[in-house]
């Protein structure tokens, strides 16, 4: 036995345990085992299908049930809303950075609207824009603009005085000052605003799709979940939820973590 090269010796296991990814995978595996055991014990696939059944349903839904298409519908609406919201927020924040009254106005609006859940505006949005994508984009904008503006304003305010003086010392003013000094100095806050905005947008969208699913002809992920629950395909409901989680993880780890590693972490502006 011990002469086989693949055998995991205690030292090697201890070494693997130092790796954060390994530890996280272990957490996932444990959760999976727990799920499987509880489902076996419950033995009621309509209330709680087994993990293995869910994974099977996931593959099947990808193959036959246009789950990928549904995910794409959700993502494309999300990207439109997120992009539009960021453009609006950037204009607002730039105005606020340049003008005191605009700053007061934005701070007041942010304080008012940030605590208001975006989904609460959906009935109103439906009244104003009708049962279509515009309503979704409206609530998405609401979900993203205020938390991002709040983070950006805080970021600009916390730029060290010395760095502001350095920028002014070299004759930078107006847009050049904002682009070359304020924005990079506030980048940790801007990135965290982008992350919070993304998370809020993602939740709001799935929730909105649950309330009214069909947009642009085919439904998104929320609609997929809702439709399958109506037909008591609980395994597909779980499959849909897994996709929601998976996309969230991919964006968090793949996109935002990569940007952070290449910028604010590399520059020592964030641990």
């Amino acid at each position: 036995m011990s002469d086989l090269p693949i055998v995991l010796r205690p030292a090697r296991i201890a070494h693997l345990w130092e790796n954060q990814i390994v530890r996280r995978l272990v957490v996932l595996v444990l959760l999976g085992i727990l799920w499987e055991l509880v489902a076996l014990w419950q033995n009621n696939p309509i209330m709680l299908p087994r993990l293995s059944t869910t994974l099977g349903a996931l593959v099947e839904a990808f193959r036959d049930d246009r789950l990928l298409g549904a995910a794409w519908v959700s993502l494309s609406v999300l990207l439109k809303g997120y992009g539009l919201a960021l453009s609006i927020a950037l204009v607002l924040v730039a105005l606020a950075a340049a003008n005191r009254f605009a700053r007061d106005a934005l701070q007041t609006l942010t304080a008012m609207f940030n605590p208001l859940p975006a989904i609460a505006l959906l009935p109103l949005a439906l009244l104003w824009f009708g049962l279509n994508e515009s309503s979704l984009i409206f609530v998405l904008c609401h979900a993203v603009i205020w938390p991002f503006a709040l983070a950006a304003l805080q970021g600009f305010e916390s730029v060290p005085e010395t760095q502001r003086l350095v920028g002014r010392n070299y004759g930078l003013r107006g847009p050049a000052f904002v682009a070359l000094i304020l924005a990079p100095a506030a980048l940790p806050s801007l990135l965290s605003g982008l992350k919070i905005g993304w998370a809020f947008a993602w939740r709001t969208l799935i929730a909105a799709e649950l309330v009214f699913g069909v947009s642009s002809g085919s439904g998104g992920l929320g609609w997929f979940i809702y439709r399958n629950r109506n037909e008591l395909y609980t395994d597909k409901v779980f499959a849909g939820l897994l996709v929601v989680i998976l996309i969230g993880l991919i964006v968090e780890l793949g996109v935002f973590r990569t940007i952070e590693n290449r910028t604010v972490r590399r520059w020592g502006m964030q641990k």
Binding site: T162, N169, W267, M269
Partner: peptide, 19 residues
Amino acid sequence: GPGPDRVVVFQEFDQLLPW
């Protein structure tokens, strides 16, 4: 007003741009 004909070296270490 400020200008690059009078360059300041400050006491604070954060005068360097961290990025």
